[in-house]
Design a protein around this nucleic acid. Structure first.
Length: 528
DNA sequence: TTAGGGTTAG
């Protein structure tokens, strides 16, 4: 590096020069070299020569390395040289605690609570919560900022951070409130805020609102377009996703690695087999983008679900990158749809070599055996789960009522209204069965007798959440449910009957995509 | 010759 040679020739570099050198390292991703300079400063006890700028550069460097020790020694240094009240320096430290490898949000919060906060401090803390999936904390802190923030007003940065939290939680009511604030502040055209609004509405099930917000963004960048493509894709509206993609290219923007993940995922959700194949090839030939593991994942999913299991398997075999668990998982999932036990067993073998701790794969394989009536193998998998001490993340569904998020776990009885919810659900099930609903017991894991299987299905979290929503929401309003796993096929069928009987619209976001249930039909046309 | 916070996939 030329800069380093020049730096070494300076006999007694002052802090300005040291800082410039360190910052050069950070820009070139040579973070450790940068930190080395600051370590030397700390060690030589020359704290007096470290100025504010140097401390800022040091912390932004430490935010990029997984070394909590560095952040901690810098933390000690700023106290020593009297920068602990300097908002600029402390804000950067706050960020480095949470963004460095330690992901130490608790320490970050402690720093936040004791510092003299300015608008950047609030925004950083809200963003850190939002980026780490702690939506309730992010939304709560945003409200706190407006109420007790000592006159701090929200700005574009706070809005995009809190919108991310709403998107993650599927908090449509809060999201709409924030959107109103965006409109009042005239920030609809802002590319950061606008893109966040698009993302929020997409992930809260309102793709039309997302589209309207998208049109208002003045200078759309690649992220705005990708967000809109993803939005249509998640809702199974593959053709519209492709139209946006075409429009993006016409506007002069070049699609990148992530854009193609959005495009291929959209094809996969909508079952657009030919289009998916076409864009997969064009990605390399026309745009020079080498397929990454995520693109292969989309293609295996697309081919597999369309029933081209052999082609999906061949694609995996010819991959230039090492297939990861998600790839074999996509094939396994396709094996379930097309009831291919043999290929499923092979996929699982490869899966367990990569990641034997993920409960999802055991459940999937067990379901495949169960649907094939191979109960002995189901039992074998259950034992494996036990002996390997595999922990299942509990399945839950959530529903937002008057701005508050209610969570329902499988068989949940913790809700104060649970007796009413269960009896409401019983009555609903009776009416559904009169209308022709037959519980699909094939999706039950355990080797239970038929009656037991039926009662196991009744208490799935999405059914509980929908019952609660029907009991408490405004009549005729659309019901939004967020689920942390995939919807099972019985719940999918049940929702269709529920919309028919109650004449209500239900939108469920699961781990993969959206299902819009209306008048006894689902937007996915049962392709999922 | 230096300086803190925000948006896209799965």
């Amino acid at each position: 590096m030329d800069a380093r040679r020049a730096f070494d020739e300076i006999p007694d570099p002052n802090p300005v020069i040291v800082t410039a050198m360190a910052s050069g390292y950070v820009r070139n991703n040579l973070v450790y070299h940068s930190l080395e300079l600051f370590r030397a400063m700390i060690a030589s006890d020359s704290a007096s020569v470290v100025d504010e700028a140097a401390a800022l550069v040091a912390f932004s460097a430490s935010a990029r390395v997984p070394d909590r020790g560095v952040t901690a020694s810098l933390h000690a240094l700023i106290a020593k040289i009297g920068f602990e009240r300097n908002a600029g320096v402390v804000n950067t430290m706050l960020d480095s605690y949470a963004k460095g490898g330690s992901r130490d949000l608790e320490v970050a919060r402690k720093v936040f609570d004791t510092m003299e906060r300015d608008v950047v401090s609030w925004n950083s803390m809200i963003a850190l919560y939002a980026q780490n999936g702690m939506s309730a904390e992010a939304i709560g802190l945003y409200s706190k900022m407006l109420n007790v923030g000592g006159g701090i007003k929200c700005n574009a940065v706070a809005l995009s951070a809190v919108l991310l939290a709403c998107a993650h939680a599927g908090a449509i009511q809060t999201g709409k409130r924030i959107h109103n604030q965006v409109v009042r502040m005239g920030l609809e055209e802002n590319v950061y805020v606008g893109t966040s609004v698009v993302d929020m509405y997409s992930k809260c099930g309102r793709v039309e609102m997302a589209s309207r917000a998208f049109r208002k963004i003045k200078e759309k960048n690649i992220l705005s377009w990708s967000a809109m493509i993803t939005g249509y894709g998640m809702h199974g509206r593959g053709q519209e996703a492709l139209e946006i993609f075409t429009e993006m290219k016409r506007s002069g923007l070049r699609p990148n690695y992530i854009t193609f993940i959005s495009v291929l995922a959209a094809c996969s959700h909508a079952g657009l087999l030919d289009e998916g194949r076409y864009w997969y090839n064009a990605m390399k030939q026309e745009f020079g983008i080498e397929a990454g593991v995520e693109h292969y994942g989309c293609m295996v999913d697309l081919l597999g679900r369309a029933g081209c299991l052999d082609e999906a398997y061949s694609l995996i075999k010819e991959m230039k990158v090492k297939p990861d668990a998600a790839i074999w998982g996509a094939l396994l999932s396709a094996c379930r749809i097309h009831k291919n036990v043999e290929l499923a067993e092979m996929s699982v073998k490869r899966l367990f070599e990569l990641d034997a701790s993920n409960s999802g794969y055991y459940v999937l394989l067990s379901n495949i055996y169960a649907e094939a009536g191979m109960w002995k193998d189901v039992e074998r998998i259950r034992l494996l789960v036990k002996t390997r001490r595999i922990e299942k993340p509990p399945g839950y569904s959530s529903f937002e009522l008057k701005g508050k998020i209610y969570l329902f776990y499988v068989g949940d009885k913790s809700h104060p209204q649970h007796i009413e919810i269960y009896s409401y659900l019983e009555k609903l099930l009776e009416r559904m069965q009169e209308a022709g609903y037959v519980p699909n017991t094939g999706s039950v894991l355990h080797d239970l007798d038929e009656e037991e299987k039926e009662s196991a299905l009744r208490i799935h979290s999405e059914k509980l959440a929908v019952a609660f929503a029907l009991m408490n929401s405004v009549p005729r309003s659309v019901i939004h449910i967020i689920k942390n796993l995939r919807v099972c096929s019985d719940c999918h069928t049940a929702m269709k009957f529920i919309t028919k009987i109650t004449e209500r619209e239900i939108i469920i976001r699961d781990l993969q995509r959206f299902h819009h249930f209306k008048d006894g039909l689902c937007s996915c046309r049962d392709y999922w």
